[in-house]
């Protein structure tokens, strides 16, 4: 458990350092994610017991953290409710834009992706 937490923290730390050093707009944790993913791919076929054991441990810890992903948004979400006055007299307009644009974006993106995937499947079957 401790080893996997150390590794996850370490990758975030490296990610944050890279972000600060190169002044990137991509957040440090996302860079950490990419680096961890690359490391996992590079060690894919390793038979080293230490590495495979560590990977198993990281999987268990990651599943635990991701299982409670929703909880992690509560503290910042409370801030949103407490600072709603920032929206001044634009509540309805702002909520309206968020509602329509978000729902339409979800519908558009999913439909587009499904259509492309189906095209590929048809193509593959023809071959």
């Amino acid at each position: 458990m401790l080893k996997s937490i150390f590794i996850i923290f370490l990758f975030q730390l490296i990610g944050e350092s890279i972000q600060k050093y190169f002044e990137l707009t991509i957040p440090g944790p996302v860079i950490g994610l990419i680096l961890l993913l690359i490391s996992l791919i590079l060690t894919k076929s390793t038979k080293n017991i230490f590495i495979t054991k560590t990977k198993e441990e990281i999987t268990t810890t990651s599943n635990f953290i991701i299982g409670y992903l929703s909880l992690l948004f509560v503290p910042i979400g409370v801030g949103v409710v407490m600072h709603l006055s920032y929206l001044e007299n634009n509540y309805i307009e702002v909520l309206g834009v968020i509602f329509f644009s978000t729902v339409l974006t979800i519908g558009f993106t999913a439909l587009l992706m499904e259509i492309i995937n189906n095209q590929f499947k048809k193509h593959a079957r023809k071959k």
Binding site: I5, F11, Q12, G15, G32, I41, S62, I66
Partner: peptide, 13 residues
């Protein structure tokens, strides 16, 4: 939230 973002590498992998 930061470590959880890094941890998302596992399901993607």
């Amino acid at each position: 939230l930061g470590p959880a973002t890094v941890a998302l590498a596992i399901p993607i992998y």
